[in-house]
């Protein structure tokens, strides 16, 4: 991806890295440029993330948090989880986004300080990241699941979680007893629905299963799930 990084982007990134290293000398060696195809991006250490983000907001005009998400690098990878903040300045640098990333220290019980106090927008984003990845944001005012229900045992965007889902209980045991319905793994005949790219008309590019040579009744020879 390094070819895709534009010259101005690299300059902007190294400028921010230099500024942050000067301001936070004790974590200077852990503040590094981050590969990015578009916007400037930096890696920061998790323990200094809160201070760095507050500094970027107060001194560099990044008053808007436009996104907060995480990356699961793979089961067994270390560091496994990286939290990413997308910062936007609407006063100083309109339209320029700054991406800040920090690795979680623990691979099994990932934690990250919450930025909900400095950007209220982070509240629901952190709840979603907690729901999907299981990253605990310490200091969050109300860290509950936001998409799945309370009591759901998995974190669906983790790499080990299958796209089709897992067999499980319905959120409501009364309804489950009445209807005998359960969470089941979704049928994956032909694989997940994916859109085709390229110079196609809308009918050809719309999302569909790529391999329709097999079905639930007529399974694929090697391994049932996609």
């Amino acid at each position: 991806m390094s070819d895709a990084i534009s010259e101005t982007n690299t300059t902007a990134t190294s400028g921010i890295v230099a500024t942050l290293r000067e301001k936070f000398p004790q974590s200077a060696e852990k503040i590094t440029p981050r590969a990015s195809a578009d916007h400037p991006a930096v890696n920061v250490p998790a323990d200094a993330a809160m201070a760095i983000l507050t500094y970027l907001r107060d001194e560099h005009g990044y008053e808007m948090l436009s996104d907060l998400t995480a990356v699961d690098w793979a089961e067994g990878a270390s560091p496994r989880f990286t939290v990413v903040w997308h910062l936007l300045s609407v006063t100083i640098n309109p339209g320029v986004c700054l991406r800040v990333a920090a690795d979680c220290a623990s691979d099994t019980e990932p934690e990250m300080p919450s930025v909900a106090d400095i950007w209220p927008a982070a509240n629901w984003h952190e709840r979603e990241t907690f729901d999907m990845f299981g990253i605990v944001f310490t200091g969050h005012p109300d860290l509950r699941r936001i998409l799945m229900w309370d009591g759901y045992p998995h974190h669906p965007l983790r790499k080990e979680f299958p796209l089709a889902g897992m067999d499980d209980e319905l959120p409501d045991p009364e309804v489950e007893a009445e209807t005998k319905a359960r969470l089941v793994a979704a049928p994956m005949a032909g694989g997940p629905f994916v859109a085709s790219t390229g110079n196609l008309n809308l009918a050809e590019s719309e999302p569909r299963a790529k391999d329709q040579s097999w079905s639930e009744e007529n399974p694929k020879a090697e391994g049932p799930k996609g």
Partner: peptide, 17 residues
């Protein structure tokens, strides 16, 4: 049938309940 949502979150047809 669950439609295009072949995923962990979607019930594959309301006739299950």
């Amino acid at each position: 049938t669950g439609g295009m949502y072949r995923s962990y979150s979607t019930m594959q047809g309301v006739d299950r309940i």
